[in-house]
């Protein structure tokens, strides 16, 4: 289908963007990469009236290191930029690993991290990665800036903590610490499709012991789901078969996936258990040991 009739305005500066947005009213939508928004328009799932194009705002661009501990990623960084940027590859390997899982090359060339987080698709990779990495979402309105922990940013199905006339300016990630290991895995029907289920995982290793492990699932709820009980089960343990089995059992209380076109809730629980075992093998380096 074709998109519904629209008005389109393009902002040259951030302050102009807020003015245009305010003029257009609360139903207007910001257009960044447009890779989800234009698809929803084609389905006529939304009818925003006006699109405010922010994709040229240099204030929302750039990937840089802030001090010794933080990587700041401008909201308009495309998936392709994330995938090839040296700071990301060096300091945020989880993000670099997630990029090839996001759609396809032509979409990654346009789609942005800010757009992905603001759209808040529960099956998307980057929201779960941001939660797993304890990222901060930098939100801006015409007057102010505030930081929202990623774990509190996603409030429901396609819903976020952003307020009216507030946008994502950047995402701030703590740089991976020495000894930190990460993995992101998903199951999808076709390479590049939205995941039927996925997991973003992080831990530190002391010898073979998992310290402060993080397991954040996607595609199994209305937002990224932190598997608290499974995490508690493996914390301070080694990724031995009995521990992995106990964590898989604990997932039953962490996840309550709704049925969707990919399968029943039961099927999705099974996917999640399989992914958990694979992720723990990766975190503990067991797959490398086997390959060696």
């Amino acid at each position: 289908m074709k998109a519904p009739p629209l008005s389109y305005v393009r902002a040259a500066t951030l302050s102009e963007a807020f003015q245009l947005w305010r003029d257009a009213g609360p139903d207007a939508r910001l257009l960044a990469g447009g890779q989800s928004l234009l698809a929803t328009l084609a389905f006529r799932l939304s009818d925003p009236g006006t699109l405010v194009d922010i994709v040229r705002l240099h204030e929302l661009r750039g990937i840089s290191q802030v001090g010794g501990t933080t990587i700041r990623v401008g909201a308009l960084a495309t998936h392709a930029e994330l995938g090839r940027h040296d700071l990301i590859r060096r300091h945020l390997p989880l993000i670099a690993e997630a990029v090839p899982l996001i759609a396809h090359a032509a979409v990654r060339n346009r789609g942005t991290i800010g757009g992905s987080l603001a759209f808040a698709d529960p099956a998307a990779e980057l929201p779960a990665c941001c939660v797993a990495l304890d990222a901060m979402i930098v939100a801006r309105n015409a007057a102010d800036e505030r930081r929202i922990p990623a774990a509190q940013f996603f409030t429901g199905l396609y819903a976020t903590a952003l307020r009216p006339y507030e946008l994502i300016a950047a995402v701030e990630f703590p740089i991976a610490k020495p000894g930190e290991r990460t993995a992101v895995l998903e199951l999808a029907r076709r390479s590049g499709d939205y995941a039927m289920a996925g997991v973003a995982a992080k831990t530190r290793l002391a010898g073979a012991t998992l310290i402060e492990p993080q397991l954040v699932f996607f595609g199994v709820g209305d937002r990224p789901v932190v598997a608290e009980r499974a995490m508690a089960t493996i914390s301070g343990q080694q990724a031995l078969p009995a521990t992995i089995a106990a964590a898989q059992a604990a997932l039953a209380a962490d996840l309550d996936p709704p049925a969707d076109r990919h399968g029943s809730g039961r099927t999705k629980r099974h996917f999640a258990r399989v992914l958990l075992a694979r992720a723990l093998a990766r975190l503990a380096g067991l797959d490398e040991a086997r390959a060696a």
């Binding site: 890779q35 698809a39 032509a106 979409v107």
Partner: peptide, 24 residues
């Protein structure tokens, strides 16, 4: 944005032509 039949290049990078507004 699903099928790729509309793939073209914008500023040297391939894109889905159906997911880019001409106005932009």
């Amino acid at each position: 944005g699903f099928c790729g039949a509309c793939t073209v290049r914008v500023n040297g990078a391939i894109v889905r032509g159906c997911l880019v507004l001409a106005a932009s």
